[in-house]
Design a protein around this nucleic acid. Sequence first.
DNA 1: TCTTTCTCAATTTTT
DNA 2: TTGAGAAAGA
Length: 785
Amino acid sequence: MKYQPDESGGDAPEQPASLSIAARAMASLRPEAAAYSSGLNPEQRRAVEATEGPVLVLAGAGTGKTRVLTTRIAHLIATGKARPYDILSVTFTNKAAREMKHRIGALIGPAGEGMPWLGTFHAIGTKILRRHAELVGLKSDFTILGMDDQLRLMKQVILDQNIDEKRWPARALGSVIDGWKNRGLLPEQVPPGEAQAFAFGKGGALYSAYQARLATLNAADFGDLLLLCLKLWRENPDVLENYQNRFRYILVDEYQDTNVAQYLWLRLLAQLRKNVCCVGDDDQSIYGWRGAEVDNILRFEHDFPGAVVVRLERNYRSTGHILAAASGLIAKNESRLGKTLRTEAEPGEQVTVTGAWDSEEEARGLGEEIEQLQRKQHPLSEIAVLVRISAQMREIEDRFVQLGLPYRVIGGPRFYERAEIRDALAYLRITANPADDLAFERIFNTPKRGLGDATLQVLHAYSRAERIPILAASRKIIETDELKPRARTMLRGLVESFTRWARLVGAQPHSEVAQTILEESGYTDMWKKDRSADAAGRLENLKEFVRSMEEFPDLGAFLEHVSLVMEASETEGADRVSLMTLHAAKGLEFDTVFLPGWEDGLFPNQRALDESGRAGLEEERRLAHVGLTRARKRAKLSFAVNRRIHGMWNSTIPSRFIDELPPGAVEVLDAPAHFQAGASRFDRNPTPFGSSYGTPGWQRAQANSGGGNFGASRGPSGRSGGPRQIEGELVAKSTGSASSFQEQMRVFHTKFGPGTVAAVDGNKLTVDFDKAGRKMVLDSFVQPG
DNA sequence: TCTTTCTCAATTTTT
DNA sequence: TTGAGAAAGA
């Protein structure tokens, strides 16, 4: 990856003329008359206009946080207090950065477009590191490692240190090291006690070894992008001073999500001028588990004495009932700065709570309610289903598929994380940088070239001994008798290909080079020959991948983009229900929000409770608060009394959060109407599922319903043993009688191949497969043949 | 070296 | 129940 000089003014202090005429003209206007700030409420205006000194903006959900941030930037530029390149503006996600750029552009026109220092922590860290790489032991074209590279590297280090990978898996140790990096700790700064606590006392040594490997590879992982900035600044005060002077104003979005490293990073930069404005909401801090420190926001006034604190409490998003529910809930948290959201909107519909017998019925009810909304012309794109864990999605998706309800999953596997894309990228990375060992290892036997572990071991040993990259080692080894003839031939082919491809770079447009590489390496053919269902999709992805390269000036720029951004342009527009985790929902809003799975153990999640105790519970509660505040008009909670966890049915109790909602804002619904009629005959049956009715959670739910008859009337049906089996049987019977298979019939099964029917039992067949032996299968999976 | 079978674990996830 | 990753078999 090459460093791309930034023409938009990264070094702009030398060219002050870049302030546009329009901006200068706007600067002459009195601020209160400026168009960009019209329509701000008094608090927002205060947050925008308090430009000097430290400012903390506590912006509750839906109070116009982004508006304040962008207007503040516009204000700084329009009043001439700062030029675009004087402002450092950091966000967490690329999406937020993009949105901010867009909105600033809309406010002040092209003058804001060249904001070179608006970006994610990591993007800005990268930019800074590339300029001073040699001061921290890297070259300016260092590679940025993704998570899978990181894992591969970690495995090697573990192997080197002779640590049992079963006791200390690479994943676990990787996250320990990440944790240290998040806290701004270099290997030598890790407290000895902690360094000893992992991997048989070798935790610290492992970290050092890992960093050493990174340095030899001329690579940095995500944590390094910040950590090495800290190192750079601490060891080179002159460099730090340069940046302290350069950034006259600093703005931080989502401050509650900053970790210690980011906090230190900001504090170093802000130390001199102290013009730092942090915007955040302690009630929306939901990333504690990956190092975010709510304390950063709780401590702001202490760290920056004399800080102006502005509270944004006017909510422009949700109706009264939704806001009341969310506020009532979050008020149960003890560690918070405290805000009270207000709205002038109508109370609207109450938040609904629905109980279901099991998660399947919950999903069914969900589908039903969405279809009802759909019939009332409610756009699907304004409906979201927010779940606590991704595992909840499957059942819901199944239901949507059955109903033919269009939906999209947000935050699934990202484009650049797909295997085929990572493979393609690996080919390009080695072509661009022959020293990229991790990329080489990824694809040297993909597609299959008969090169396996044994060959890799030989290459590794040689490359270590000679201190050269693996590709260079390969080049030498194929001239010796080190490898078996077959492996040598295959390796020679590969090495020669890379030499050839490297020559193409620069000579041909880079997307064509990529196309050539993918074809000549046999990679595309590999997928063309693949018979599995998703092969076609993968080929499609590869095409899209090559196409997306055209947007970049050269291969280096493309690879840099990919390593930092990891997401492809989204296809917007279609009218679909959105399905995502609560975490992924932060920052989004919808007219109607469904919140299924509010059961103790699932939400609040047991693991969060076990691992972090009260702090964990509070974070879960904040998550609930985030979920509720996503809704503009309707929030619909539900829980199931039985849920399958890891394939086993467990009985569950409603979430304690349900009880914490202010009763006035909540309406407890009976089970879905479609279920009532069929279930009524079971109403007189006593407690069909034993203990559940007597549990505290159930009683809480009953008490909350006011009438105390919650659940009883809908009678979760005396379907003892769970509805699944019964339903399964019903299905079996209804189709079973019509089974068109008979004994001795020849059949074909997509997985087991051809076979002969040995017995028929309803829709279940016992088949003697020619290859797979005797199996019991459902008739719908076989064809007569 | 490639393929099949088995074992074991199992939030949340951006950069 | 499902999936990934490792051991065992071909």
